[in-house]
Write a protein that binds this DNA or RNA. Structure first.
Lengths: 247, 247
DNA sequence: CGCAGTGTTGACACCGTTCAACCCTAGTGG
DNA sequence: CCACTAGGGTTGAACGGTGTCAACACTGCG
């Protein structure tokens, strides 16, 4: 199964064959978007629901002085605001970090799921809960952890989330982020992010070469991050393809 | 109308008389909980949905070293996790800050709303969206604003949210928080919170005497906070009883 | 009265920011 | 093939916002 969206849903509910086919069919309309472009901008009233298939995207806001704060990353399989499509104006933007592949779903197809496919609907609901939990964890991370642990925690989160959708091999995955992106996600300066990453590399915890991140010592990274098990609600039992455990 | 929950729903959808009566009836079962106690604890599988009627509550997590991070405040009219009651384990706790009055709703009553009362259901959905937006704004606030603006922003948010549910009079409202609570919400130390509040008082922006907060100069507070209009999704048009505008 | 929780203030240390210079790499165009 | 450029990353030095430690004041309460 190479469809990360289906893969993710399968970890959240017991998706049957018929539902699986439906999901596969849903995602038929895909397109590639260029690195750095926005999927949705603040103020938009999105008409369609979008799903990330490959690459990385992020929710962000720009402040008046030009600072940017990233509030979430979207990894393959993630959905850009299921419900806002039904009612609201975006209060933030979603941009892609590297080149990304995105599927677009029409509203009435979402309605079809909600009304006639209870298993999928429940999976979507759970996915939504996980997003919320991740959001709360970011507040904890950015509010109460020092730079070293904060960055470790973010990398660990991204590692686990990529693992769940089968994007990790040999403790290694594609992460098209700049250090400025990391800084904007953690509320640090990019200079300090650079120093901190250097330290993580020196201590043999990670390697990061041209957008491929390798977790050389997963257990060390987890320990440094102060990662608390369970906040991802046992997303996929917390177990990735490499036997990565969230606990 | 003195029911803050109904008041809040009314600002989010056009609640008719019959729905209003239903809501009033929903909330009949109320109880008072003592200051400092927990409504829900991390690890619980809540059976009921709870609504704050008076007082203040907060979502929080404790870290291993004993630090606490508050991730959200719940003001009168707010709901403690509508959907988690249906499926999950709490990954955080909810505690009350002062003495609070809380209504309890059974699951099947929630189901009744979702299945048979579309107007209320839509209001609940929007309330959920607003909660999400507030959560995101906290990340921005704690990540990118300096202490002075950060605290101003939090106070401004609490001011607006209290105004929406009719709890503000003469730019004044009851806020049973300690400075430590503020520190745990903003990710600052309580010593620095004390200094910053002193500064806000000295500059004539606020007064805070035994749990009553007065916004002496609302426009100044808004300016200091760098508050961006609209992130509350025009919650109640952003207009409180005192003509407070969110824009 | 004494106590515990809360708030205030000062001194000092330190983590992280800012500013600046420099390097490396990939991409572009001649 | 090379020169040039722009973006990204690294490193050093100095500054400053915020944390930490500590002492003390105030308040409400048993």
């Amino acid at each position: 199964m190479t469809n990360p969206f289906l893969l993710k849903l399968s970890t959240l509910a017991a998706v049957g064959d018929e539902d699986a086919r439906f999901v596969e069919d849903l995602c038929r309309e895909r397109r590639t978007v260029a690195a750095g472009s926005d999927l949705i901008e603040q103020g938009d009233r999105p008409e369609h629901v979008k799903i990330i298939f490959s690459g990385l995207a992020c929710r962000y806001k720009l402040l008046s002085e030009g600072e940017r704060q990233i509030m979430a990353f979207l990894v393959p399989g993630d959905i850009c605001d299921l419900h806002i499509a039904v009612l609201g104006v975006m209060d933030h933007s979603i941009g892609v970090n590297g080149e990304a592949e995105v599927a677009t779903i029409a509203r009435d197809e979402v309605a079809e799921i909600v009304n006639h496919r209870p298993v999928l609907a429940s999976a979507l609901l759970k996915a939504n809960l996980v997003d919320l939990a991740v959001l709360r964890e970011w507040i904890v991370n950015n509010g109460r952890r020092a730079a070293y642990a904060r960055i470790a925690h973010l990398l660990w989160e991204l590692y686990l989330r990529h693992a769940v959708v089968g994007m990790v091999g040999n403790n290694q995955f594609f992460l098209p982020l700049t250090q400025r992106d990391l800084a904007d996600a953690t509320g640090l300066s990019y200079v300090h992010v650079s120093r901190t990453l250097t330290r993580l590399k020196e201590e043999g915890v990670i390697e990061w070469d041209r957008k491929r991140l390798t977790i050389t010592d997963p257990e060390a990274l987890r320990a440094i991050s102060g990662f608390e098990p369970d906040y991802l609600h046992r997303l996929g039992d917390g177990t990735g393809p490499d036997g990565v455990s969230a606990t």
